[in-house]
Amino acid sequence: MRLENKVAIVTGAASGMGKAIAELYAKEGAKVVASDLNLEGAEAIVDGIKENGGIAVAIKTNVAEEADLQAMYDLAIEKYGKLDIIVNNAGIMDGMQPVGEVDDNRWDLVFSVNTTGVMKSMRIATNIFLEQGHGVIVNNISAGGLYGARAGAAYTASKHAVVGLTKNTAFMYADKNIRCNGIAPGGVATNIGSTMTNMSELGAARQNLGMAIMPRGGQPEEIAQLALFLGSEESSFINGQVVAADAGWSAY
């Protein structure tokens, strides 16, 4: 098993890519903390993992709340005695608004979940990893963190910020046996679209121009395979990278 004796937290684990990552990590031997704002969904994932012989526990987490993040990490340590991997997967979309249509409340909400929440999660994780002497961070970012035509202004800016945060963290702790990498998925079949409200007609029309050249949509399980590689020792020489998983979309 590729993650035998490892302990991993996966945020946004109740559905989509987070669900696929949590399930694959458990299948490969990790003890998993399945974190999500949707506790019922996270518990269902944990039940499935246990039915298949895996080890997991669920916790309700609003990643925009620092106390919730701390409780999530505390549970991992109390339950399993250590933490090896954190997968920051939870995220929300905007409504494709270009900057001229951005609403302050939506901007603040998107950043609180997609950027500030990830930073605070990484801050807690890094201090645990420094004390332990090892640790791996995997940030599920988005093709929107690499390019400007995949979403609205708020989402795009929030994900670009996490790209920088990922690279900076990798550099800062490269000599401390802490690795930090990111995944930039293209269009993947998840329910993140349910977080999109008050859609911008202009923004959606412009964004659709890029969708036309997407070779195909991806499945959550395909992203989970990359998250497994980046979380495992197989990627021990990879640090500070954001790997696109988009069927060649970004090659156009």
Rank of each mutant, 00 (worst) to 15 (best):
140 N>F: 05
78 E>C: 00
52 N>K: 15
192 I>A: 01
92 I>Q: 10
61 T>A: 11
97 Q>F: 06
135 G>F: 08
2 R>M: 14
213 I>W: 06
123 R>Q: 14
33 V>S: 02
80 Y>A: 11
25 Y>V: 08
59 I>F: 09
123 R>N: 02
185 P>M: 00
215 P>F: 01
194 S>T: 07
171 F>E: 11
91 G>V: 06
222 E>Y: 04
75 L>H: 06
159 K>T: 01
132 Q>K: 15
6 K>C: 10
201 E>P: 11
22 A>G: 13
12 G>C: 07
142 S>R: 04
138 V>D: 10
14 A>D: 04
230 L>E: 04
122 M>V: 08
91 G>K: 11
19 K>W: 07
28 E>H: 13
194 S>C: 00
128 I>L: 15
90 A>N: 04
2 R>P: 11
193 G>C: 00
135 G>D: 08
223 I>K: 01
33 V>G: 02
64 A>L: 07
117 G>A: 08
100 G>N: 14
248 G>D: 04
247 A>E: 12
7 V>E: 05
138 V>N: 07
75 L>G: 12
49 I>Y: 12
225 Q>C: 07
28 E>N: 13
161 A>Q: 00
219 Q>E: 13
190 T>K: 06
194 S>G: 01
237 F>L: 10
193 G>E: 07
121 S>T: 15
99 V>F: 06
38 N>K: 00
110 V>A: 05
192 I>V: 12
150 R>P: 01
105 N>D: 14
180 C>L: 01
223 I>P: 03
129 F>N: 01
238 I>G: 01
250 S>Y: 05
163 V>H: 07
59 I>E: 08
111 F>H: 09
12 G>N: 10
58 A>L: 01
128 I>W: 10
217 G>P: 10
3 L>Q: 06
162 V>M: 05
165 L>H: 01
132 Q>D: 09
241 Q>W: 10
